[in-house]
Design a protein around this nucleic acid. Structure first.
Lengths: 210, 210
DNA sequence: GTCTATAGCGGGATAGAC
DNA sequence: GTCTATCCCGCTATAGAC
């Protein structure tokens, strides 16, 4: 077989594995199901990826390296303080919305309490990845300029991330509590972006700035 | 054996089961481990709870009925608008902090995408459970009084819940990004409550109110 | 009500033909 | 590189003694 076909097979397995791991988690996933969805034999999974755990780690690796790449791109663009914050929220929500896989895998790893994952995350942040420093700088700059009220920037960062991520994580519940959410997805997403931006900007800007 | 001893065994099993399900999730949990931790024989789990799924549902049921009870109590106390919001944040964060089990089980059910769970949640809210109506009323009242700026209360509710819940869910990651968090737990919790309250109140109150 | 023993099978992993 | 066949362990669940 040609190397191209080989790559096809590897990729087919990875795609199928991602689907199944996202839906069922590491423990709930079945190698047989991955093989079926990939349209290949179960033994091939072991040929290419040795075992289940290893295959799972492959998915985690690729998913989070893509995530860090995206965040780096977002972080590196600079605007005036207020625009910068709106821009971050806009991009962040877009990314999560378009990468539900990322969100679920993040959830599984958090619940697993996988220390190795946490340490990798830490390493990725420390090495050449300027988040959250860049975000903190924006807020500090606003505080120096006198446009943002005095507070601990860390709290704001935690709050933004939480508002953006948890909304999607708990979407099934929120949509039960507030049925209107599901009616017009894109409309609602835009409303959500505006609401988070407003809360944040009204919440950290000094009254005189509004 | 006396009925009291029977209740002891049932309770021991439930406690052990809660621990294991919280740590490993439904798929990752092992009946043998539950039996070991409860100090009883594996067959007893089936004698009392028929099968694994049923035992798990028992844990979910009791955990969430306790949750709804607590939220009802919190919601039913009334204060002036601003205090009411601070009070809710205070109580909400306290509850989550003292009930990590609840948090993790919620996470597992969200990731499982368990529709039955979502529907039960919906039912619990509809039947005699005044959240989020009570919260909406507080915000609407503030808007009528002219102390709160015009906005969709739903967005605020989603934001508060997200900020409070996700902080604890992602604590292992946040503590890697901001190592200071772990130094003084109670101090930090108080700082967090204040930060969320400030963000919210500055963010939804009209400038003239500050 | 609690135990021992075991059924029964699902599922990860490997050997080996092609 | 891909398949078939099979191993074999681990786990849920049950039967049955005490």
């Amino acid at each position: 077989m040609s190397p191209i076909e080989t790559e096809d097979t590897r990729a087919k397995i990875l795609n199928a594995a991602r689907q199944v791991f996202v839906e069922k988690g590491l423990d709930g996933a079945r190698m047989q199901e991955i093989a079926d969805r990939a349209g290949v034999n179960k033994a091939l999974l072991h040929y290419y990826y040795r075992n289940k755990e290893n295959l799972y780690q492959e998915i985690i690796r690729s998913t989070f390296s893509q995530f860090f790449q995206t965040v780096t791109n977002i972080i590196n663009s600079t605007h005036p303080v207020e625009e910068q914050i709106r821009f971050f929220i806009e991009q962040h929500i877009n990314f999560i919305h378009q990468n539900r896989d990322f969100l679920k895998l993040l959830g599984y790893e958090l619940l697993r309490g996988n220390e190795t994952f946490f340490e990798n995350f830490e390493q990725a942040i420390k090495k050449g990845f300027q988040f959250p420093e860049r975000f903190i700088q924006v807020i500090l700059k606003g505080m120096e300029e006198g446009t943002i009220r005095e507070h601990n920037p860390m709290q704001t960062i935690i709050s933004v991330i939480s508002m953006n991520v948890f909304f999607f994580l708990a979407f099934p519940l929120f949509s039960k509590i507030f049925p209107g959410i599901t009616e017009n997805e894109t409309t609602f997403l835009e409303e959500r972006k505006k609401a988070v931006g407003d809360l944040l900007l009204y919440g950290i800007l000094k009254p005189s700035q509004k």
